[in-house]
Amino acid sequence: MTLVPAPSHSVHQAHDSHAAHLHAVEALLTDRLADLGTQWRRGTAVADTVLGDDDVPELLTTLVMSGGKRLRPQMCWWGWVAAGGCDDSPDLVRLSTALELLHAFGLAQDDVMDESALRRGVPTVHVRAGRRHRGAGATGDDRRYGESIAVLAGDLAHVEAGALVSGLPAPVRTLWWQMSVELVRGQARDLSAAALTSPDDAIGQALEVAHAKSGAYTIQRPLELGATLGGAGQDVVTALGRYGRLLGEAFALRDDLLGVWGDPDVTGKPSSDDLTAGKATVLLALAEQRCTGPARAAVDRMRGNSHDGDDVEVVRKAMESEGVRDLVEQRITRAVTDAHAVLRSAPLPPAAVEGLEAVSERIAWRRV
């Protein structure tokens, strides 16, 4: 039986509407964050005694508006197009905006857990809050204070995201809940993987963490959410889920590579940041399999969180000489090829297929 895609607008129209959608998301983000700040300060005549004007909503606003790829709104849009959507809608803008705020929730708290100093080239929320603590001459531990404020900024982003989603159709809210649980579970698994010196099936665990923590809530679920909001049939949602899982793996693996070999001037983070932090990535799991001698000893120290700067450079070089970097690049290429094959065999409008193929190329071989 020949599958006939639902009528859709042209590829050119889809891209024009896509740009307009992202513009609308930026506008709603600006409005909601401004309203959040107003509500936060309502009923009080004085500024925060430590943070001053750089209070929790302002810290969150800086995080959200300091750049970023807006990948989640993009994927949500293309899910909508895959469902046959032609024009933007207020509900779609709300959903995409909520996704970006959920992302801010994850970033603020992930930076605390990873002890990251920079995000998008600017100090992370907990670092900025800690500096305010020191500048105010406050008592107590400035680092602990900064981390606590960052957790609250993440909580505030999560609350605002939930408020945006609350009025959307029930199937969308159900999928949102599932995605949110997956995100938190992925973060918990990431912490557990880092706490074990020799985990069983290290590669499988690293891939699971990458899927739940990065790939699913960045690629797969936003696609499914956009399609569900657009009233797509189960065959479309299933195909997008398969494509999204494959591209989500490519996204997460590229993140791993950028965390070791990324250009700090482009990524906004220090070079080899993931190795310095001893993150339990697919790269590290493969290095554990392939490295011997001094390089393997350095990997073991990284697993035990007893490594130093010299170990970082030893492992980074060994990952190249032992073919680990090449293996991951090959895996990314294979995931994108398979993702494209899914698109071409699915009952999707041509505009959605072309748009999603272009997105996958940008995501898989990005520099930031």
Rank of each mutant, 00 (worst) to 15 (best):
Q109W: 14
D48E: 11
T292M: 01
P123V: 04
G85H: 11
I203P: 10
R367W: 00
L63D: 02
L101E: 10
T61N: 08
G186M: 08
G162V: 03
R72S: 01
H9N: 12
S89C: 08
G140K: 02
T38F: 12
P350H: 09
R301S: 01
R70F: 01
D300G: 02
H18S: 08
R134P: 14
L275M: 04
G323H: 06
I149R: 10
L253V: 08
V165F: 02
M302D: 00
A150V: 09
R42P: 05
H211A: 15
D200I: 11
P270R: 00
R94N: 03
V122R: 09
T139D: 13
R131V: 13
K279W: 07
L22I: 07
D114G: 04
V181R: 09
G204D: 07
D88V: 14
G167E: 06
L343Y: 10
S148W: 01
P90I: 00
C291R: 03
A150Q: 07
G84I: 05
A47E: 12
S166R: 13
Q330H: 15
G231C: 14
R128V: 11
R72M: 01
A170G: 06
S8M: 06
A14M: 05
V209K: 04
E224S: 13
G85L: 12
L118A: 02
G130H: 06
R173Y: 03
V368N: 02
L29N: 03
R128K: 09
L152S: 02
D263W: 04
S8V: 12
A202G: 06
Y243E: 05
G226I: 03
E313G: 00
H340R: 15
T44C: 15
V181K: 04
A285F: 07
V172H: 02
H23F: 04
T49Y: 08
D87H: 14
S17D: 14
T61C: 10
E100A: 13
D200Q: 15
E224T: 14
G259Q: 07
A170N: 07
Y145L: 00
L284G: 01
Q187F: 12
A216P: 09
S272C: 14
L101S: 12
R362S: 09
A206C: 12
G84T: 05
H307G: 11
P90T: 00
T97S: 12
L275S: 03
D110V: 06
L196N: 11
S96A: 15
R72I: 01
R245G: 15
H158I: 02
K269A: 09
G135L: 08
V236R: 11
R94F: 08
L257W: 03
E208V: 06
T174F: 10
A14E: 07
V50K: 00
D110H: 08
A34D: 13
L225F: 14
E26F: 05
G231N: 12
D110A: 04
D54Q: 14
G130V: 10
M302F: 02
L3H: 03
A297W: 10
T62G: 08
